[in-house]
Simulated scan of single mutants.
Amino acid sequence: MTATDVWLPIPADEIEGLPASSDAGLNYRYWDGGQDYPADPADCAFYVVPYMRGTEVAVRPMAAMTSVQVVQTLSAGIDHVQSGLGSLPAGVLLCNAKGVHEASTAELALALTLASLRGIPGFVEGQQREEWRAGIYSALADKSVLIVGYGSIGAAVEDRLVPFECARVARVARSARTTERGEVHPLAELPGLLPDADVVILSTPLTTATHHLVDAGFLARMKDGALLVNVARGPVVDTKALLTELESGRITAALDVTDPEPLPAGHPLWHAPGVLISPHAGGPTSAFMPRAKRLLAGQLTRFAAGEPLRNVVLTTG
């Protein structure tokens, strides 16, 4: 018997535009990572991974999904499901959530950059202490910005930088190419670009090539007083190396992601000088759910019609 179950982390009746179960021959099953499965995983044809539930939950049913055809994440990154891919049959499509998180993640990247440069954390602390902390603060205007990871999120970050009169925006991706906005440099050229950047924004996927990309050598090449902004993944940065630089006072950082994550109480990163930390808030905003629902409705409409899916990252086997 052909598998027809679709596992959704959002109730099907809350997703406008899904193909009707009776017409498409699909059985919608709600599972958001709870201990009990909604049905036999072997009957699952289309698995939508629960959002922000971590690797353990994401991969737990995958070994038993012997008939699955599609694994759809609701995140741009796929690192949380990679450990389970080897247990899947050959030919399974892995799709990511390109188009869902660009707006909110780029928005936070800009917010963290502005908050750090303009000294907002100090203003908040001053307000709590009833202190008027007047002074001269950095502006984003006239700064040189380097975006490391120029995919759809990196491009969305640059879209939001345009009105801020930056002196220059440089772009780095896995391979070189040219866009409407200019040249995208390959990773091999990154060392030569770092010394000129006042702000370095990380938006690269976590892969074997980018794990600890930001190591002691990377940080040493950043100019004195530069700001590192991470909206990618925590392990892209070597936390120990970053702490060394922060504690020296040579650079500052704004981090939406950390390694480890969640950052445990007592970790030295919490109180390192010159660091602003947000709790992986780039994706989970009010902008997420409408875009996630549109993605799922579109993908499942294509799946039911036998049409090619979007956002295919890889095929197993």
Rank of each mutant, 00 (worst) to 15 (best):
R177Y: 12
E125R: 11
A156W: 02
A170F: 03
T178N: 10
P121E: 02
G135I: 08
R168P: 02
L117N: 09
L110Q: 00
E158S: 01
S175R: 15
L108V: 06
A109M: 05
V124R: 11
A141C: 09
G149S: 07
F164R: 07
G126V: 04
W132K: 04
I153A: 05
G119V: 07
E102F: 10
S152Q: 08
A156L: 02
R177E: 06
E165C: 11
E125P: 01
K98N: 15
R133E: 08
L114I: 11
R118W: 10
E130A: 14
A176G: 01
E158I: 03
R174Q: 09
L140V: 12
A167G: 13
A167V: 05
Y137P: 01
G151A: 10
V157Y: 02
S87Q: 14
R118C: 14
Q128S: 13
P89Y: 09
A106W: 04
K98I: 04
V92A: 06
H101E: 09
A90H: 14
R168V: 08
T105V: 15
E125L: 10
C166F: 05
S138D: 14
R160K: 13
L110S: 00
R129L: 11
L108R: 02
A170K: 08
L146D: 02
R160G: 04
S152L: 05
L93M: 11
V162A: 14
T178I: 12
G91N: 06
R168G: 07
R118Q: 14
S116I: 03
I153C: 03
Y150T: 00
L161P: 03
R177N: 07
T113I: 07
T105W: 00
F123L: 13
L161R: 01
V92P: 06
G135R: 06
G99Q: 02
I136V: 15
S87W: 09
L88H: 07
E130I: 12
S144N: 15
A155M: 12
L93F: 11
Y137E: 12
